[in-house]
C-alpha cells in the first residue's frame, strides 16, 4: 500500500529523447515533437522533450554507431539503420519488422522540379537524357536521399527496356552526363537549383520539391510527376541499447508509434510526406499526384543488395563515370 501511494504521489517524470534524423525532416519533426510532448503529458503526466539532430543520413548513422546516444533514429534509407545493427549491434537485425509498413510511417516519391512553364518541356525520365538538358541531383555516394533518385531513374530504365540491364546502364550514363554539379547533400542540390539558378530540372523528393516551391514562390517553379517512380520509404527505429541504458524504452516506443497515429500522419501529410493511413491519405489526396510507384524490394531486392550492386566502390554508379 505504501509503495502504491509512493508511486502515485511521485512527481511527473522528465524524459529527454534524442531523435537523430536526416536533413530535410527538420520542419516535420519540430512539429511532431511539440505535438507528441503534449500528447504524452496528457496521457501520463510526464514531461518529454525531444532533441533533434540533423545531417546527411549516412553521417548520422555513423554518429550513432560511434556513440551518439540516439533513442530513436529516423533516417532516409533502411541501409543506414541496417548498418547500425550490423556494425554496432545496437538494435536487432530484424528491426524493420518491429513496426508496421517496414518501419516507414510515411513515404515520399521522386519527382522533378522544373522552372516555371517548363521551358525545356520535361515530362518524364526520358526527357532528362536529351542533349542540352541540364539535370541537378545530389551525389548518390554521399547522399542517402539521392540514392532514391538514382534508383527511381534506374527503375524507369529497367521497365522501359524490358529489364535489359545494358541498355539501362547506357540510359543512366546519358542521364548523369547531363548533370553539371553533384552536390554532396540533397538539400545542397536543391539550393544549387533554386538559389543559384543552375540546371533545367532538379530530381528530388516530392516533399523537398513542394517545400522549395513554398519557400521560393509558386511563380518560379513547377513540379512534374514522371510516369513512374520509386516509393521512397524513410524508416524509423528504436535504438535498444540506448533506450535500455537511459530507461526510456516506453516513451521512445510511444514516440515512434505516434508517427503512425492519425495525428502523426496528419503532421506528416502537412509537411508533404505521403501518409500511410487511408483516412489521412484521402483527406490530402489533392496534394499528391497519382504516380505509378515501385518499391525497392520489388525491383532491387532490398537495400543491402541495391547498395552493393550500385553504390559500393566499383559498383554500377562508379562504372557510369568510369567508362563513358
Amino acid at each position: 500500500m505504501a509503495i502504491l501511494l509512493l508511486g502515485l504521489s511521485a512527481q511527473a517524470a522528465d524524459f529527454q529523447l534524442l531523435n537523430v534524423s536526416y536533413d530535410p525532416t527538420r520542419e516535420l519533426y519540430q512539429e511532431v515533437n511539440a505535438a507528441f510532448a503534449q500528447y504524452w503529458k496528457g496521457k501520463t503526466g510526464d514531461n518529454v522533450t525531444v532533441q533533434q539532430s540533423h545531417g546527411g543520413s549516412g553521417k548520422q548513422a555513423r554518429a550513432v554507431i560511434d556513440g551518439l546516444e540516439a533513442d530513436v533514429v529516423t533516417l532516409a534509407l533502411a541501409y543506414d539503420i541496417d548498418a547500425i545493427s550490423e556494425k554496432a549491434g545496437f538494435l536487432p537485425k530484424d528491426w524493420q519488422g518491429r513496426l508496421p509498413n517496414q518501419s516507414a510511417p510515411y513515404t515520399s516519391t521522386v519527382v522533378f522540379l522544373v522552372r516555371k512553364e517548363n521551358p525545356k518541356s520535361i515530362h518524364d525520365w526520358n526527357d532528362l537524357v536529351k542533349p542540352g538538358v541540364s539535370v541537378i541531383t545530389a551525389n548518390p555516394k554521399t547522399s542517402g536521399g539521392a540514392r532514391w533518385n538514382y534508383l527511381a531513374a534506374w527503375g524507369y530504365a529497367l521497365k522501359k527496356f524490358g529489364n535489359d540491364e545494358t541498355k539501362a546502364r547506357l540510359f543512366m550514363a546519358q542521364l548523369y552526363k547531363n548533370v553539371p554539379v553533384l552536390d554532396s547533400g540533397a538539400r545542397g542540390s536543391t539550393i544549387t537549383f533554386v538559389e543559384r539558378g543552375i540546371g533545367d530540372v532538379l530530381i528530388t523528393w516530392e516533399n523537398e520539391a513542394i517545400l522549395a516551391i513554398k519557400e521560393r514562390g509558386k511563380d518560379k517553379f513547377e513540379i512534374v510527376a514522371p510516369s513512374i517512380s520509386i516509393l521512397a520509404e524513410p524508416p524509423v527505429a528504436l535504438i535498444d541499447k540506448v533506450v535500455d541504458k537511459k530507461k526510456t524504452r516506453t516513451v521512445a516506443q510511444a514516440y515512434l508509434q505516434y508517427l503512425y497515429s492519425e495525428e502523426g500522419q496528419e503532421i506528416a501529410a502537412k509537411h508533404y510526406y505521403r501518409p500511410r493511413l487511408a483516412k489521412v491519405t484521402a483527406k490530402y489526396a489533392d496534394r499528391f499526384p497519382k504516380i505509378k510507384l515501385f518499391t525497392i524490394n520489388e525491383l532491387f531486392g532490398g537495400w543491402s543488395k541495391a547498395q552493393k550492386n550500385h553504390f559500393s566502390d566499383g559498383g554500377l554508379f562508379d562504372q557510369i563515370y568510369g567508362h563513358k
Partner: peptide, 17 residues
C-alpha cells in the same frame, strides 16, 4: 573524375562505412 577532390572521396568512403 572531373571535379572531385580527395577529401570528398574520404567522405564517400565513410558513407560506405
Amino acid at each position: 573524375m572531373k571535379s572531385e577532390i580527395t577529401p570528398l572521396l574520404i567522405i564517400t568512403k565513410l558513407e560506405q562505412y
